[in-house]
Amino acid sequence: MASIQKRPNGSWRARYRDENGKEHSRHFPYRNAPTPGAKGRRAGDSAQEWLDSVTASIVTGRYVDPDAGRVTLQTFFDDWSQRQVWATGTATAMSLAVRSFDPSVELARLRRSHVEAWVKRMTTDGLAPGTIKTRVNNVRAVLRAAVRDKLIATDPSDGVTLPRLRKAEHAMSIPTPETVGAVLSASEPWMHAYVTLAAFAGLRLGEASAVQVSDIDFLRRTLHVRRQVQRAPGGTIAVTPPKYGSERDVFLADELLEILARHIETQGVRGEEQWIFVGAHGEPPHQNTISYHWRKTLVAAEVEHFKLHDLRHFYASGLIAAGCDVVTVQRALGHAKATTTLSTYSHLWPTAADRTRAAASGLIRSALPSLADSSRTADAGNA
């Protein structure tokens, strides 16, 4: 229900009730004008326009109670986050993103300019484009939840320009087999098996730390990835399920099985869970522990610094070079979707040009064996 009424003092009052029956009103004051009553009529028109806009927002489902958005971003996040089903790492990342934005600002006062200034500040501070994108997406999730709860009408982060990400083929670092061999040779005895799981099974750092003896099926030559280790507040560890879609079985090479068997025999296992890698207090190692030993290993190997996670790229590149299809690589790496695998490694698969040349070469060699033989003879002579 809505109405407009002229007051005795010449002002106009527009009123309406929202879907919860709460009454809202706004006054449009009368002001003197050269033509008597002219300003009063314009005030009445303004009241009608305001009421029309409110009615339109109600009809289109975009109505927001003017008082609803007066809570701060942090207050809304604290309440909303309690209802979310998140892994520990996700909860930590979400909280960090909100704190780095402006948690004290009221939702109703948020503007696109706030988000743009925040992105600019992170860029100036030297954060990587990928990190900035992740933080903006995390805050955007909170803002969109506020839109769904009708605390704000629109998401102020929508359409904000982010720093350009480097293309995967330029951003990705893949160590050479020689580099991986040097690192393995320089690894401490307990670290040797850890590196092999990353390089030849594609395990993430947290997944490798969480391997138990029972996860290794020596008969079927399979490793069951069922959990991961994450660093919890206070420097402790949290053992959680792997990332969504990452629980999987990895088929192991015979050589890797021999390395794991020798590791278990010489290094032993710890605890009732039979962890094969151990950090402080008999628990599996967390990220800081592994990072420390990884840096030591790189120094000992005298190789250029690269991330332990790059060994996962090394494994993926090997599968692709051997002719494995997208789904095979996806399942081996534990990607939830094949699109993730493609967006990360599409540049490693042979292109149409590569396949066309290889096919044409095969046709030539089958149809003109003498030409193929002369080509091989010429190549031998050049060598």
Rank of each mutant, 00 (worst) to 15 (best):
A322C: 08
R355A: 12
V299E: 14
T328R: 01
S374P: 00
W50T: 07
E273A: 15
E272W: 03
Y194T: 03
D249M: 08
F251Y: 13
A253N: 03
E116V: 12
G245M: 06
S209H: 06
E273K: 11
L371Q: 10
G318N: 02
R31Y: 10
A322T: 07
R26W: 01
E247K: 13
W50Y: 09
T55Q: 14
V139N: 07
G21P: 09
N20H: 13
D249Q: 11
A280N: 10
A332Q: 12
G37V: 03
V250C: 01
D217Q: 02
S246F: 03
W12S: 10
I364Q: 13
Q267W: 01
E49T: 13
A93H: 12
H224A: 13
V180A: 09
Q267T: 05
A201E: 01
G235W: 04
L96I: 10
T92W: 00
A208F: 01
H309R: 06
N288I: 10
R31L: 11
A378F: 08
Y292I: 06
G44S: 11
V71I: 15
V64N: 08
P66D: 06
L73T: 10
R166S: 15
A208C: 06
S361C: 04
I264A: 03
D102H: 10
I174C: 11
V225Q: 01
I58T: 04
P103N: 05
P233L: 04
P241D: 10
Q74K: 14
R164H: 08
F306G: 10
D373P: 00
D158H: 13
W80F: 07
L348I: 07
V105S: 13
I264L: 09
W275T: 03
V278K: 05
T88L: 14
D310H: 08
F76D: 04
Q74I: 08
L205H: 13
S95Y: 00
F77N: 09
L363K: 08
W294K: 03
R26C: 04
P189C: 06
D254L: 10
I216H: 02
N32W: 00
N9A: 09
A380R: 12
L348C: 04
P350C: 12
G202L: 01
K243F: 07
S100K: 13
S214I: 04
I58E: 11
R17E: 11
V160G: 04
S317E: 05
G10L: 07
V142E: 02
P103K: 03
V160H: 03
R148D: 15
A208L: 01
A378C: 03
S346F: 00
P175E: 02
R111E: 15
